[in-house]
Design a protein around this nucleic acid. Sequence first.
DNA 1: ACCGGGGAAGCGACCCGTAT
DNA 2: ATACGGGTCGCTTCCCCGGT
Length: 292
Amino acid sequence: MPYGFIKHLEKRGFSQVTLIGYEKVMGQFFSYLAKLYPEKKEPFQISSKDIKDYIRAQEEKEKSPSTINKELAIIKSFFNYLWEIDKVPVDPAVKIKRLKAKKLVELNTFYEELNSLLDPILTHKDYPIVRKAIYVLALKGLKYSDFLFKKDNVLISNTQDQVEIVLENRTILLSGQEASIFIEFYNQSLFNSSDFVFTSKIYLKRKNDFGNLENYGPIQLMTILNHLKVISSDFNLGENLTLTIFRKSIAYFMYTKQRESLHSIAYKLGIEENTALIYLKLITESTAEKTY
DNA sequence: ACCGGGGAAGCGACCCGTAT
DNA sequence: ATACGGGTCGCTTCCCCGGT
């Protein structure tokens, strides 16, 4: 990449992977400009409009806002660098704003909606049991790190109709259909060698890591998100069904419909009151504003 | 036609610094 | 003090290619 940009980043201790990413994005950006302007543009000839157009072009390619924002961040740091070394008199990128993240789903009724799907999902013929178990727990507001509980942390009642899962800072209770789905999954998990109940295949491509490769490790976030993605597309829930959305809708539901105190919401979600407050704040803002 | 490998693209969470 | 946004990371999925 020109002007020693990559070298500069290298000195700042960015990892190889990151550098490659930067190079790729800048390459993309410049080849976009090259198509627009047959003769090569010097950096100081690149205008804010060029950058905005580039962003728009990426939007048309249907990249998600977060990807585009990431690219914008890279472009910004490139021009910031050029500005610092006096290669450009003005930084054309500095004023350009990030895209707003896509509007969240209608949160005010979202928990009820998610909850009403529980039954169809749990009785779904084609869904693997792990997907059902994930949904059950997501609906309880587990965050990613909560999913990493071990087999020892699961207590099943003698009558096999109640389950307690002991998490770091709270305990989850399951009963009825939820419990029986979970127990089924749990029993199945006993066959894998890992301590974890939820597992993912470990990626084999790990440099300098010979031997000692276990096949299964703690479940990866993306594994969870993928299952949620399938569900969300099958049930038309809009694209991003993340654990955070579950948690936010739960918080919102408890706050508005059940009139629960901040304290008890925080307790039930296993977070600090501050954080719970932020959840609710974000919600009220995002329902108020129409982004995008 | 079908696979498996390997690289590229896409993505979201997390962490942390900076602005307000 | 808090919100915001940039930077980094690790993973999945997509896509292409070469071998069967």
